[in-house]
Amino acid sequence: MKILISLIIILLSLSLFAEKSNHQTFIELTKNLRCMTCQNQSIHESDAEFSLVIKKIVKDKLKQGESKEDIEDFLVQRYGEYILFEPMFNYKNLFLWVSPFFILILSGFILFINLKRNR
C-alpha cells in the first residue's frame, strides 16, 4: 500500500513538473512570436484572433511533446521568419549576427595599431 501511495505521489509530482516546464516553454515561445495582425505585439501579449489560434497550436504541440525548436520550425515554414522576433541563425542572417562582432574586432585592431603608432 505504502509503495502504491509513493508511486502515485511520484507520478503526480512528475506530471506537475512537466506541466510547469511546459508552461514556462509556452511563455518563452509565445513571447518570441510576432502577432502578424497586430502592431508590434507578441503572441503572448495579444488577444487577437490570430494570436489565440497560435497560442492553441503551441499549447497542443507542447502537450504532444514537441520541442520549442520543432514548434518554431513549424510556424516559420508557414508564416516565414517574420513570425519570430529573434532572427534565426542561418546563412541568410549571417551578416546580421556576425557584423557587430566583426566591426568590434576590426575597431579594436585599428585602435591597437593607432595606439602602437602613437607611442
Binding site: M36, T37, F50
Partner: peptide
C-alpha cells in the same frame, strides 16, 4: 475550418 489557412500561412 482554419486548418487549410494554417497550412497556407494565412493570417488575414
Amino acid at each position: 475550418d482554419g486548418s487549410i489557412g494554417l497550412e497556407f500561412g494565412v493570417f488575414g
